[in-house]
Design a protein around this nucleic acid. Structure first.
Lengths: 234, 234
DNA sequence: ACCTGAACACCGTTCAAGT
DNA sequence: ACCTGAACACCGTTCAAGT
């Protein structure tokens, strides 16, 4: 029941692919994935839905372009001369933070295979893995592991953000986690003994730290299997 | 342009939640996520769309129930008395194979947070992590890393299956990978030096082995950080 | 070349009416 | 209690007609 009170401002600049993508991102950020429709987009751009198709092939391409714009924007930053392990962490955190700021890119990321936004991250990760000294034959495997993990977390965070938004929009994050934690504590003690046991850890956990711990597990595993000796615990 | 020639068979058994979910799974497997509509479902069940709402709250619940039925079915199998590391690999492979057989659960998995299907996997992973000897305070982190990685691969495989199905349905997997690999080889040499470099590795890689390698990285990382001494390379 | 907006072919969901 | 199917409120997309 969101109010539709936003009036179509008079258009001073001409319609363009860039402008459409820009407004699409605004719409996705404020109204969520379900809020992005060609009609809403057209209204904000003071035109009809058909006009958009002159610049963009369809909704899929629009989502791709919006995701790519956000991801490209976040990957420009980052420490340039850090040690490869630190640089990998920074890179991964950049994606993590982008998903937190724009939950919809998490879902889109997980949905589109080998498309432009993902390739950007793949390339950056690859350079760090090379710098770590992973032999060439194992580089694809190492980068895939890192990327798949990052995508998994991204998708999960997006899903959580959506659930939080749709089901308990007036609670804060701590309350939301508390509710999930409480529901775990009520699970069947035989079938879900472990889950009940860690319900408290869920309540107190820090998403970012948890995410980085996973990155460290993978980097450590890569180092043990493929790195120069002595780097496993670095 | 799929033919709709399937006639509604006379219904001998009464409508039930189980029957609806069963037909929904058939529809998802044969026609993909876009093929699951309440109208198509009602036609196959020889009724009207409204009837389904007596048994299922809506489309979200239907997708949840379908995913849960498939996941629950695959988790029953698996070696009972294997070493924890082997059991974890078997468990992970079970999810991997389920996603390969039913690509749509990959997307659904990644979309639904902390719902029943995911909790089943979480619990199973948790028991293995306990058996490995990870201290209690680190168990949630360890299981989260494994689960997020599995979800990432699942989502990615689902996305790839959909892209393969929608864009080159008459090519086999090797041809599809070859096409992606070839497109990588044409990327800008400066911006995508690494990606170009591993294009050949993409062409020849084995999804299952790649997946297991990632599981091993994480398990190794967990062992190095939290396991009893000497288990890192086991 | 670019825009307009009505129209088309769908959706998920509801609900009065039936049995 | 359970089913029916027309109707409602939307979608993405197309396209004849305009400028």
């Amino acid at each position: 029941m969101a109010t539709r009170a936003r009036r179509p401002e008079r258009r001073e600049e001409p319609l363009s692919r860039e402008r459409i993508v820009e407004v699409a991102i605004e719409l996705l950020d404020t109204a969520g994935e379900r809020g992005l429709t060609f009609r809403a987009l057209a209204e904000r751009l003071a035109t009809g839905p058909g006009a958009l198709y002159w610049h963009i092939a369809g909704k899929g391409e629009l989502l791709d372009a919006a995701t790519d714009a956000v991801v490209a924007g976040t990957l420009t930053a980052g420490p340039v001369d850090a040690a490869p392990r630190e640089a990998t962490r920074a890179l991964a955190l950049g994606v993590f933070d982008a998903v937190e700021a724009h939950p919809w890119i998490g879902a889109q990321f997980a949905r589109a295979p080998w498309r432009s936004p993902m390739l950007r991250v793949f390339e950056r990760l690859g350079r760090q893995v090379q710098a770590i000294g992973v032999p060439e034959a194992a580089q694809f495997t190492a980068v895939s592991a890192l990327l798949n993990y990052i995508l998994g977390v991204a998708g999960q965070n997006a899903a959580n953000a959506r659930a939080h938004q749709e089901r308990q929009p007036d609670t804060d994050r701590a309350q939301f986690l508390g509710a999930v934690s409480a529901s775990w504590a009520e699970l069947d003690p035989d079938a879900y003994a472990f889950t009940r046991n860690v319900a408290e850890q869920l309540r107190d956990h820090d998403d970012r730290e948890e995410f980085l711990a996973g990155i460290d597990f993978i980097l450590t595993g890569i180092a043990v299997r493929h790195g120069p000796t002595g780097t496993a615990l670095s």
